[in-house]
Design a binder for these strands. Structure first.
Length: 208
DNA sequence: TTACTACTTCTGATCTCTAC
DNA sequence: GTAGAGATCAGAAGTAGTAA
């Protein structure tokens, strides 16, 4: 499939793939998963290059449960670990993945994307990382310093360490940037509002 | 394998400094 | 005096090493 897409679909540059470690994923299960993902994408009003509905292969109930369980795990890992919500506009689906939210977690809704973390700084870091790695970074030029970040220009290309050796910044994976994170809860709240303003996004502090 | 200790890192709060 | 920026600190949490 990748070879076909490499030749026929020149527009893509990233992919997400998953499978089972033991390799036990039947044709019927693959067809079911493809069909479910297509359905979810369409419900989320995401434009698809693929015009098919997916194959209607017969699948027994046990295999169906196994496949859907795998899909649920994949989506959860994407959201919790990689911070990627494939069906961001489908709030119902998002809620189903996390029916018992942990009161210890912090979460915000930024635009159509949920960000959760174990701390205020964690959520802030995830949000900034996502923006930096997206086209939204072009809207954040006022926040970028060519050297070390500071409390105003929170993004920079160098790590910042205090005189006593305290790290005041965090490196953003897969980018050249470091983000200043040594803020109080209130300061983080305000910085997120600034990010929302600059990127024309609405932000809701769900568990803050 | 478990328990313990020491060390490092992370987090949230607070203090100091500066500009207005 | 006040607000915001910059810096520091204490406690919590996590990790690594070691002995039993």
């Amino acid at each position: 499939r990748l070879q076909q897409h490499y030749i026929n679909k020149p527009w893509w540059n990233k992919l997400i793939f998953f499978g089972r470690e033991d390799g036990h994923l039947s044709k019927a299960q693959l067809d079911l998963l493809e069909r479910k993902i297509i359905e979810k994408m369409k419900r989320a009003e995401i434009e698809l290059d693929n015009n098919t509905q997916g194959n209607q292969s017969y699948i027994d109930k046990l295999s169906q449960f196994s496949a859907l369980s795998l899909l649920s795990k994949v989506e959860r890992v994407l959201i919790d670990i990689a911070n990627i919500d494939l069906f961001a506009s489908d709030d119902t689906e998002f809620d189903r993945f996390d029916p018992t939210p942990n009161n210890d977690t912090i979460s915000i809704l930024f635009g159509r994307q949920h960000y959760t973390g174990s701390s205020y700084r964690d959520v802030f870091t995830k949000l900034v990382s996502t923006l930096v790695l997206s086209s939204e970074i072009s809207k954040l030029t006022d926040l970028i310093n060519s050297t070390e970040p500071n409390t105003v220009q929170i993004l920079g290309t160098l790590e910042r360490v205090s005189g006593k050796g305290t790290k005041l910044t965090k490196a953003i994976d897969s980018s050249k940037y470091h983000v200043y994170v040594n803020f109080s809860k209130d300061a983080l709240y305000k910085k997120i509002q600034i990010l929302a303003h600059l990127t024309n996004n609405k932000v809701t502090f769900e568990r803050w």
